[in-house]
Design a protein around this nucleic acid. Sequence first.
DNA 1: TTTTGAGTTGTTCGA
DNA 2: GTCGAACAACTCAAA
Length: 446
Amino acid sequence: MKKINLFWFRRDLRLTDNAGLFHALKEGLPVLPIFIFDAEILDDLVDKRDARVEFIRNVLQEIHQELLALGSTLDVRFGKPAEVWEKLTTEYDIAQVFTNHDYEPYAIQRDEAIAQHLNSQGIAFKTFKDHVIFEKLEIVKKDGTPYTVFTPYSRKWKEKLLSDLGNVAEHHCSNSTYLQAFPSEKYLENFLKTTAKKIPTLEDIGFKPSAIAFPPKVVAQKTIKDYGENRDFPARNGTSKLGVHFRFGTISIREKARKASLLNDTYLNELIWRDFYAMILANFPHVVGNAFRAKYEAVPWREAEEDFECWCQGKTGYPLVDAGMRELLTTGYMHNRVRMVVASFLTKHLLIDWRRGEAWFAQKLLDFDLASNNGGWQWAAGCGTDAAPYFRIFNPSSQLKKFDKDLSYVKKWVPEYGTTAYPPPMVEHKFARERCLQVYKMALNS
DNA sequence: TTTTGAGTTGTTCGA
DNA sequence: GTCGAACAACTCAAA
């Protein structure tokens, strides 16, 4: 049996500028890329029309086509990773396994177990940074501990990006070595030449097609350039909609950060937010399931099943909230500004546990990312890292007036708005606001 | 150690 | 309609 190296695709589904893949290919031994549909995750998905699973399947098919053209193949498995790796180590004579870092608690545990198994077989398990620009402890305060406030973190982040450029007059973020591509595409001939494997269909892994449309990888330069002016208006096409591609690694974060650093600082900041929350998750894994600030666990959330259902279905009687929730249900996407409005409404107006909103987003969002979703929800609820005083409560009516004045976004998703078919507000704003202030105050003072 | 300044995205009230 | 202060008083980061 021929000795080979394996590259394990996870959240980095691309053949270009892929750190782990680059390191695997340039070793010289033939590389076989693999992907595992994780039964531990997929078996828990109740809705078998999951757009994310479909997205991954489509991308794997594309990658497979590219590999076929090179005389290679993609080996796609279904099962529990530990069991799949038991098999792989008996089927192939593996020298080393390459993959990219994954910072979610489940993934960290999984990778530790796999690394142990591989090492016991004399196989090296090599992992690389690829998903973020700076990871866990690369940006820290002077005392070496991680930041928990965004602005000083972002300043340090940008400083570090420039730190390798010295005093060159024309120096610019985009030239930083931290944003340089890993040219994995230069070594494509090093993929293992072998007969084609079959890529499982959606049905093979127990799923069905969704009705969700996937946003393109390409964004108009103008969109990024004008991002700062347009991004808050949900009716405008002002955001990149690249979330899903960052989530699955179908585009390179370094490539986009390079562009952002040239085009628009507000957009670059959004990419830094992504690094920030990935860093928070890596350093404070208790945020999964728990408030970052423990004392906020004292807030007595309302059970309110019916209220929660109204929120999920977009029937709150607040048009901007309902438009957002319906956009989510229909498209698997929601505009960023509206995400804040609906999150504030659920946690502050309805006093429903942020974890339930987080879980609903996790189920519905095509671009769902554990770190960013959790960070956003904790921010909205006021229990997260950054200073968002709990008495800052979004007024869904003034948000509508500010950001969708002519109602074009609302009319698109809530066509019955303004007719008798549209329900009255499920809770009066002034009442809800005062109730929230009182409940939080009580909880935090006890 | 203490102090100082500042903190993604807000709202309301009264002049 | 616009503007600035008050909201209520916290926490972090750095000097």
